[in-house]
Write a protein that binds this DNA or RNA. Sequence first.
DNA 1: GTCGGGTTCCATGCATTGCACAGTACCTGG
DNA 2: CCAGGTACTGTGCAATGCATGGAACCCGAC
Lengths: 117, 117
Amino acid sequence: MEPDIAGKPVAGKAESQLRKGVLEYCVLAILREGPRYGVELLETLGAVNVMVTSQGTIYPLLSRLRRDGLVETRWQESPSGPPRRYYELTPAGHAALKEFTAIWPHFRDAVDHFITD
Amino acid sequence: MEPDIAGKPVAGKAESQLRKGVLEYCVLAILREGPRYGVELLETLGAVNVMVTSQGTIYPLLSRLRRDGLVETRWQESPSGPPRRYYELTPAGHAALKEFTAIWPHFRDAVDHFITD
DNA sequence: GTCGGGTTCCATGCATTGCACAGTACCTGG
DNA sequence: CCAGGTACTGTGCAATGCATGGAACCCGAC
């Protein structure tokens, strides 16, 4: 019903495509600092404008991470509302994040090189 | 048959996903400097390691750009081999590239912010 | 002449992924 | 008891990188 965490139109085609393959690692990076649950991740991501996304994106993504063994979860009661599923990095998750942080600078510089010529 | 422009395995999953939504604009950026044909674009992209790709990627991509009116093409004879289709930016192509170069820095900084915390 | 190889182009099909949409379940306040 | 907010889940679609296969053209070797 209500569109999104902030009612924002989530921007255009380019931004949407840019998020592909990066959102996953941003989530892993956030989890590096400790366990988080779904809506909490949405808020942390949404604090940076270009990363605003929706539940329809984050929950399937988290399911994939769990299926691939990059995170594991545990349920915990909430002080107000339904229980929360907390996500936590596995060793495989740490490894995947490390691999990404290694190639990201190369990728970033490559794009800069092409568009700022 | 022969694997690719450099015989490289084209790298892992993360790199492949990173290219999504960026390759298109890198091509537009290259075309900003003048008309190019398919194989020439492959070579220019391949000069930067993380952007190595294949004909199976570049030609469908160029077809989409043409379908969407971001580039237009003209045939020109080759000194050796079949004729070449040269791709050139349209005003719409210039506009799309401009839009991308405007949001890219925000996106880049956002990713840096998350992974280098 | 013709045969093989290099160059250049094109189209089809698949896996991944962001996203819209719809649904379920729990809690609190009136 | 019910309305609204919180939190989680699943299905289906569109966009995109990529593998695969194929067609057309030119040139040099024989």
